[in-house]
Design a protein around this nucleic acid. Sequence first.
DNA 1: TTGAAAGCGCTAACAT
DNA 2: ATGTTAGCGCTTTCAA
Lengths: 336, 336
Amino acid sequence: MTIKDVAAYCGVSVSTVSRALNKHPDVSPHVREKVEEAVRELHYVPNTSARDLVRAQTDTVGLIARGTGNLFYPPVISSVERAVEAEGSTLITIHIPSDDDELTVGAELVKAKRLKGLILLGGRFDYSEEDLANIDVPLVLCTFSNNFGTLSAGHCSSVSINDEEEACKAVRNLIERGHRRIAIVLDSVRSHSIGELRFLGYKRALEESGIGIDPELILEIGNFDMHKAYSRSRALAESRTDFTALFAISDSLGMAAIKGLNDGGLLVPEDCSVIAIDGIEISRYCIPTLTTLIQPTEEIGKKAVALLMYMIRSEAIGKQLILETSLREGESVRSI
Amino acid sequence: MTIKDVAAYCGVSVSTVSRALNKHPDVSPHVREKVEEAVRELHYVPNTSARDLVRAQTDTVGLIARGTGNLFYPPVISSVERAVEAEGSTLITIHIPSDDDELTVGAELVKAKRLKGLILLGGRFDYSEEDLANIDVPLVLCTFSNNFGTLSAGHCSSVSINDEEEACKAVRNLIERGHRRIAIVLDSVRSHSIGELRFLGYKRALEESGIGIDPELILEIGNFDMHKAYSRSRALAESRTDFTALFAISDSLGMAAIKGLNDGGLLVPEDCSVIAIDGIEISRYCIPTLTTLIQPTEEIGKKAVALLMYMIRSEAIGKQLILETSLREGESVRSI
DNA sequence: TTGAAAGCGCTAACAT
DNA sequence: ATGTTAGCGCTTTCAA
């Protein structure tokens, strides 16, 4: 069942069928209708490989999600999927561990699948022009990137929250409620990724209020493992260190921390308040409900695809888009 | 950068390069080496579309996950991704809402992308031969299917836990601990999907022990929405209906139910025990930790791909594979 | 062991 | 408005 069969069935040439299929204007309504009927009748589905081969590039865009098991991704990926689908394109999604290099994987994928664009989820923010140069199709980073001041944006856009600012907001929220001894749970202060940015926000909020940084309250767990977050928080609770609040850079770390504090003898929020960033669905149903800054996952996905398509179509230069979080008041923070 | 360039670079014909690339035996070691070097030198990556066009089918397999936001999927999908990657194939993943028809979507996808195989996650179990006939490539269902007795397996395999049996185990666990008034939270008793199967297991466990079914204790929420599970459980708690335990057919429903019971005035596990099925990571960090039957997600994904590849290669008839869960003792169940 | 050439299904000039 | 035709990059007969 090829385009030839459809052409024969309709008694026209293949190019006419092709034109009708691709919604070219110069096809008579009568023929167009006949073709459409034939397609239904014959259950004809165009061969994507053939189409892609003759075209300059595929109708496929790639999505690379770095860091497995991140509960923040699924809704973003869903959103990207829907948006890409709505554009009539195809999405290829790949998850890579956080110690793989997303740009290397990306460059290969782009070549092999002849992608027309690429979206990166959870990448680093310290890409150099050189790194980026390997990918010769439009690129959208779903990571706040503060180095575009020095980088020529080229075919690279970004959409994300302002990680530093939002982290700062979260910690300010705690400070406003009277907390001064505030712990932080993060992957690493030197992650070249959101961990580092959110740590900067934490630092800034404390400094604004003249509160010093206490290394004892910085729980660097190396990755986004809930178990590590649990055990370190528990240890901190058991150590009887003086602190009344904790900021987790993600909801899952926040939930693990609450459990750790709890098992370490500290009640949340009575003995220790906890705030996080993400707003994943399940954190509305834990006990206590997590207070968190909700990332606009749906919008991140939609905007990422919109930016990508925009760049693909107009070969325009990249744009940096910053979205805002919204506070979801849970039960894990109290004033003191 | 095409195969022609590589051929020119090596001073051989394209067919020789093609043979070398595809590891045909009849290529002299010397030429083979030269080609390999040229590929590295020139950063040549074969054009998948061209390759797929000339071959009978693509190197792509599809994965359709039905029901969005299911936390059981991500680890399975990751596992499938890795396994497919290890086979040198490509995966296209699509999420569809639970009210879409996975077989229709699947049939289209297979045609359009000329997939060599398809994996279905979270599908129904009441497919007819007719339904299945629309998909003319090997198919693996990650859903327990009890109708293969009457269905000729054809090119269709399945890998999953025995939903009815495992649900029965879960409820038996509660009964063994002295519970007799046991509620259930599920999507629907007539879902033609795991909901129905697990309900059957619930029923069987109760009947085994001579416990009658009380419609009041059956919380049908229509879908897998945590919010619905929350509000219904809360209402049940507030109604002061007599019950001491609750079985949720998924971890996320279980967590939502715990929260609902809690907010409705019942402490878990003191006033009400809760058990579920899934074993998602985050349910180890809620308060109380969820007692649950862990699904072997990693293995489900791996086995699904293995079965699929097996069928693709040998055109063999399908196999039905049943895996076992393992009990993860949490803090949400106590004996009475 | 290698090369020449046909053709996979489609799109897009170009011609009419 | 429609038909004819030349490829897109690759694999695979068929010949040498």
